[in-house]
Design a protein around this nucleic acid. Sequence first.
RNA 1: UCCUCGGUAGCUCAAUGGUAGAGCAACCGGCUGUUAACCGGUUGGUUGCAGGUUCAAGUCCUGCCCGGGGAGCCA
Length: 428
Amino acid sequence: MQIKDISRYVDQEVTIRAWMYNKRSSGSIHFLQIRDGGGRLQATVVKGEVPDEVFELADGLTMESSIIATGVVREDKRSPMGFELAISDLEVVQMAEEYPLQKKEHGVDFLFTNRHLYLRSESQWVILRVRATIIKACIDFLDQRGFVRIDSPILTPTSCEGTSTLFETDYFGESAYLSQSGQLYNEAAIMSLGKVYCFGPTFRAEKSKTRRHITEFWMLEPEMAYYDLEANMELQEDLILHIIDQVLKVHGEELCGVLKRDLNKLSGVVKPFPRLTYDEAMKKLSGLGSERGYDEGLGAEEETLLSQQYDNPLFITHFPMQQKAFYMKRDSDNPSLTLSADLLAPEGYGEIVGASVREDDLKLLEEMRKLHNIPAESLAWYYDLRRFGSVPHSGFGMGLARVVAWLCGLHHVREAVPWPRTLTRIYP
RNA sequence: UCCUCGGUAGCUCAAUGGUAGAGCAACCGGCUGUUAACCGGUUGGUUGCAGGUUCAAGUCCUGCCCGGGGAGCCA
């Protein structure tokens, strides 16, 4: 019997294998708040209605002790869940030692040093399940559209983008690096399979210390042959809408009840998402009082300012080529711009997707490589893709943690990841 | 790397340069419907580390360590 199915067992005797997460007592009645991984329930132990030894056992239960409780399910409005278990028998599997986490507030440092215990708190229980639903929504969505999942290597010989800092490891006496993107490998795979995606961990050794950054995060990277920028953005819109739809369907109640998320902000998202070119965005920003220079790019403050103008996610397109990676195809109408698009989440959650059309012409790609000072050796195999049946293609990368943070309304992406790795934390 | 704020009981925080304290947790006791239960009591401290100023330092100064928030870069 699982707590989530409790309503089907009213007036029946059931046995629940659970943990204590709180206990309140009124002298002759103990109120045990229990959880079994799938839900939460209040159980009562009433003096006189159970053997004295069972009552004494309940009296001595500590926070987070593991128990097996047997009793009759009752519908009762006085219970926080509407149902409660009238315990008749109780077995203690393990009496927990003094539990470090309390019902009251804690600091960030303490919580993440105790991440292995913090995972048990109700907010984290909701977040982790929303995260799993988002992952499933992504995979279902792409699979239904004919994508093939192709895993990219995590150990790589060199940087895919050449700019960000990489984690270096020893590979039998040579240097290898933890992947920061599977994109280049995806580009090879689409020449066989048409539409592919990889989904796995990526690593950035950037010394970033903000609410939007962690050093290890999961990224969904679809890559599509013959997709131009517009088709690419439409795919993103449908993906985001599918994710929101699934999350609201499965977790709407918990998001609202436990995380206090304003669901109207999510259910109000509709396509098409507004699109601004980089030039238009900079003009709009100066109209909003920003003094950001054209070449300075969009800072976090500017991204927030822009996204606050809309209820929907917002595409910024056609970034100057100096600001973007070497493989991005330039706009034939204005070669100083790239065929690129960043998707900014509403409410200041920042960039959740980065997309571009990839340069499919070998000569133009080589020009860009030189401009970006990337060594030619590392790209030999990649250049082959432009020699043997090159086609226009595009793709994007979506940061899972940021999407989870946005949908759950979290203050920091570390809350959206089971075991966050940050600049200052790799334990536990 | 830079800017900024902080480090005092297990946790969250107080304490004009002058006797280190509260709430929660834990422990003991009370309560037959609790909702972060409540009420009474008890226990709990090398004030991050090392120096310095002073009659006197948690408090002022210097250096270091650790953490939070932010910048740049990015998803």
